[in-house]
Every structure is written in structure tokens, then in C-alpha cells.
């Protein structure tokens, strides 16, 4: 499948401005295809947010190129086409909701694109149903929970019919309930809507749902692969101070101590299956 986003050998050096806000990138290459959910993980200062902001031309590379459906983000004449193709969801839900009601806010993007009113209505209803917020059309944003606000922000982006959505730490300020609401929505965007989704996060355990995981450190890609491939390298993850899910850590310790578990589990259910299979087999033998 042709990638929606192609990041080619991008380096970005940052000069001036606030401290520690923006971090350099060093020769980063990455492709994201439609329907694919890519999790980009790293600490503050790893360059993950800088990478995200390259994907819709908020930043332009110092060296290298970023292509969005073949459009180079350096090409200023395509700026609005690029922003329409790649939607962005940011960390603080409060600071990206513009309007005083949910439906007005979701309509904001299509309104900017000059979409006809009846079509806006259709898109707003559809977007709200995708994020499971139908029924909240007239609600005031400040009365919603964090997870609901963040889903409204996602709906606002979906209503622009983007081919790719980049979410920059959308769960960082949410409680566990809000976090799982948003994670489920993010997964659906890729699977059901065929959108290329880039999910930037601190949390390793949020990567379990992704198709591909990219771990960043010091402006470079430190690890890349399926969640299982990445989670099977706990030594590297530990060196990077990343928080591996408890079951993964437990299975790694058990395997290191000689327990013959067949794989690196990502979820509780997987480890339960593996242990039950193993013990069941052992029980039959004895």
C-alpha cells in the first residue's frame, strides 16, 4: 500500500525559544500507510512531538523531506492541502476546542474548508458517531469529562475527512477511564475508517494496541517493530526507562529464570493462556 506519510532522513535543529520545548531530530525515516496504527513512544525530549509536528507542516525539516500523499511539506502552496490531509489532535483537550458547543466545534474544520452547510451537518453527525459522542451535540465543552473532550477534538479532525491523523500525547492529561475511551477510538480510526494513525505517547502499555511501535530517544529511532518485537527487548526498554506492562515484565523475568513460556505476552489474557497451556501440558505428563 502506498504510504500516506513518508518521512525521509529528516533532521531538525532547533534554535532559540523556550527551553526544552522542542527537541532535535537526527536522521529519522518513517512511513505510515492508510489503516495502520503506529505508536511513537519516548520520553520528553526524545523528539517524538517534534516528529509529529513535521507531519502537517507545523515544522519543516532542516535536512531531509516529509511527503504527505506525495506533497512535500516544504511546498508552501500546498500547505492547506497538507493540513487537510493530516489532522492533528493535541495533548490538552481544553486548548484545542474553539467553539461553545460540541457540534459547533466539530463543524469548525469543515467550515474553514468552505464545505456547504448540509454537508457539514452530515459530517458532524458522522464524526460524532465515530467517536461515540452522539447525543452531546449541544453540550458545552467545559461540562464534558477529559476523555469526552478529547473525543470531541478527534471528531473535529475526522470531520475534515483526513487521510492521516496524528495524535500528540492525547492521553497524557486523562484519567484511566478517559484514557481507555480515547485508545479504543484511536484503534477504530485505523481499523474501521482506514485512516493512517500516528499515536504519540509516553506510555508503553498504550502501544499494545498498535500495529507498529517506534521508540524514540535523543532524536533518533531507537527501536521499531510490532509491539511483540519491541516488548521482547526489555533490556533496551529498561535502558530507556520505559514502563513495560507488568505482564510483559513478569514473563520476561520468568523466562530469564528458566520458565519455558513460548512468547512475550502483551496482555493479561495472553499470559493466562500461555501459563494454562504450559501447566496443563505438565499436568498431563505427570
Amino acid at each position: 500500500m502506498k504510504p500516506v506519510i513518508r518521512v525521509e532522513n529528516v533532521s531538525y535543529t532547533y534554535d532559540g525559544g523556550g527551553p526544552g520545548e522542542v527537541d532535535a531530530l537526527l536522521d529519522v525515516s518513517l512511513e505510515v500507510a492508510g489503516g495502520e496504527l503506529v505508536a511513537v513512544i519516548g520520553h520528553n525530549g526524545s523528539g517524538k512531538s517534534t516528529l509529529a509536528k513535521h507531519m502537517n507542516a507545523i515544522f519543516v525539516p532542516t535536512r531531509g523531506d516529509v511527503y504527505v500523499l506525495g506533497m512535500n511539506t516544504r511546498d508552501e502552496s500546498r500547505l492547506w492541502d497538507i493540513r487537510q490531509t493530516v489532522g492533528m489532535v493535541f495533548q490538552n483537550p481544553d486548548n484545542q476546542i474553539v467553539a461553545t458547543t460540541v457540534e459547533e466545534d466539530v463543524a469548525f474544520g469543515p467550515e474553514n474548508l468552505g464545505v456547504p452547510p448540509t454537508e457539514i451537518r452530515r459530517r458532524v453527525d458522522e464524526a460524532l458517531s465515530i467517536v461515540d459522542m452522539t447525543g452531546h451535540e449541544k453540550s458545552a465543552p467545559h461540562m464534558l469529562s477529559g476523555g469526552q473532550k478529547q473525543r470531541v477534538a478527534i471528531a473535529g479532525v475526522i470531520a475534515m475527512r483526513p487521510r492521516c491523523i496524528v495524535l500528540d500525547e492525547p492521553t497524557a492529561m486523562l484519567d484511566p477511564v478517559g484514557r481507555s475511551e480515547v485508545l479504543a477510538t484511536v484503534r477504530r480510526l485505523a481499523t474501521d475508517e482506514g485512516i493512517a494513525v500516528v499515536h504519540i505517547t509516553h506510555f508503553m502499555n498504550e502501544a499494545v494496541l498498535a500495529d507498529r511501535v517506534v521508540v524514540m530517544e535523543g532524536g533518533r529511532i531507537a527501536l521499531e517493530g510490532t509491539p511483540r518485537e519491541v516488548f521482547s527487548q526489555p533490556a533496551t526498554l529498561r535502558r530507556l526507562d520505559l514502563d513495560v506492562p507488568q505482564v510483559t515484565e513478569l514473563a520476561y523475568e520468568l523466562r530469564a529464570a528458566g520458565a519455558p513460556l513460548p512468547r512475550c505476552p502483551l496482555t493479561v489474557a495472553e499470559l493466562v493462556d500461555d501459563i494454562a497451556a504450559l501447566v496443563g501440558k505438565g499436568a498431563r505428563q505427570s
Binding site: 520458565a259 501459563i275 501440558k281 505438565g282 505428563q285
Partner: peptide, 13 residues
């Protein structure tokens, strides 16, 4: 878990 898993794993070593 470790003792239990090692116990059944005679062959799985």
C-alpha cells in the same frame, strides 16, 4: 509462579 512453572517444565528447559 516461578516454582510452579519450573516444576512442570522438565522437558521444556
Amino acid at each position: 509462579l516461578l516454582p510452579a512453572l519450573l516444576r512442570v517444565s522438565g522437558r521444556g528447559e
